[in-house]
Design a protein around this nucleic acid. Sequence first.
RNA 1: GGGGGCGUAGCUCAGCCGGUAGAGCAAGGGACUUUUAAUCCCUAGGUCGUGGGUUCGAGUCCCACCGCCCUCACCA
Length: 509
Amino acid sequence: MSAERASAEDERSYVETARRENRAAVEALGVPAFAYRFERSHTSAEALALYDDAMGEEGPEVVVAGRLVSWRPKGKVAFGHLEDTAGQIQIYIKRDDLPLAWPLVNLLDLDDYIGVTGRVFRTRAGEITIRTSAVALLAKSLRPLPRGKTVTDPEGRTQVFGGLTDPEVRFRQRYADLAVHPEVRDIFRLRARTVGYIRRFLDDRQFLEVETPVLQPLYGGAAARPFVTHHNALDTRLYLRIADELYLKRLLVGGFERVYEIGHDFRNEGMDRTHNPEFTMLELYQAYADYEDMMRLTEELLSGLVQHCTGGHALERGGVTLDFTPPFARVDFVEGIRARSALDVRSASDPEMRDALRRTGSEAADLGTLSGGKLQDEVFKQFLEPHLLQPTFVLDYPKPLSPLAREHRSDPSLTERFELFVGGRELVNAFSELNDPDEQRRRFEEQVRQRAAGDDEAHAFDADYIRALEYGMPPTGGLGMGIDRLIMTLAGQESIREVILFPAMRPES
RNA sequence: GGGGGCGUAGCUCAGCCGGUAGAGCAAGGGACUUUUAAUCCCUAGGUCGUGGGUUCGAGUCCCACCGCCCUCACCA
């Protein structure tokens, strides 16, 4: 529906017209369509829990409030369900119980917010219900929610006929999606619990939560294209951050030994089922730790989190049982690829890697122009990544892929870096942080060469970051975890948009 | 950005070989004082995404555009 149509009085749908007539009729009774406040005594769940069958028809009196989500007027009596934050409860309204309010009752619409006073009892049909003695209109609904018909069969299974299913409408009008889908609200409750758990986990381990700039004069910490903006007063170009990394490590130079940030990163890339232009990232840095410590911390955090969510260490996802019992499986980046492709990415030439990719049908569009680190990454994606269903650490990435990671202590062609894969998706990226300013300078210089050669995702040279490292940064382990993807895994969702309240959309025309 | 698919009532969807628009739910009127997919009777509701074209005639065929979905590319 277009905005013009929604705002044009004469083109309003007949359904909305009927609701506006009801509003006028309610106001004609002297009842405001929108109340200022309401005092309830119980939530729906609390009211249900109060009732005991020994009470018969004389259960305790409760005052509840919520949205009218079903409405079955039946002559001189009416039934409906109120939905609030805790669930639903049935209400029963009998004309003879509230003759003065009956005209108002007849003007109620589905989706109105109302408050109801009455005693709890159990109907003949067996449902615990409020026998209404007073009704208050709290907010009129002038636009019907796109709700389907929910049918519950004798075994208690529910099936919805119709309803809001169009993804475009669901995400554009997330308020309507949330209003008619309690299970969607549950995903975001799970999300909040998860993030809360992570904060407690880190706080308990003496990590300090910090906030670093979102608007940055120079972006870095990942390979991605940024969003660009402009500061008027400074008349200068600024970038929305693509990662927190370089600022957080500056804080270790400053003397904080354990820091973390949970915030939004912004990457100006395509959108699909696992990418939203802005997304939530956890990054943490721990002094005197290396990537082995980060693996242990990852195992503790995720196994504890899965336990917190499910009571066990397993997640059932798409017919696969994901087992988060530590320790997680480990596979060597180089050895893992060699086992499946006979390629040693440390020594293989670019043409050899391209050949191997072509033979297995890689469809990378610019295979011919990829080189070095980018080719190694492509080989990994082609040969190893699809096999990583169970939680698996992939360790020791080649140096060209990891300009901020420290050289491996036993192989100078590699870095001490790992990524954790779950269900074929990357969830965590971590390394022993490079803290030698001279080596970091050389890595940046190499990035600048790649940028000059056409890689527009290569790092810029960050001289201030080098200056910070020159003051001295302790040995440090660092870790980044994509929170949205974590929630996807925990909630069993295949699209990132299901776990972001307002996912990015093309503007409505 | 490439490829494929879709767009019909408030919602979910039918609509055949091109012949002038249909259902369920929601809505309006009526009956019904323990219903729960309430039931029963009646009624209304559509510029078929937009703009062109072909045709005596287009929801249907063709072209373009807009939007969404899937997929590939980029990426976490």
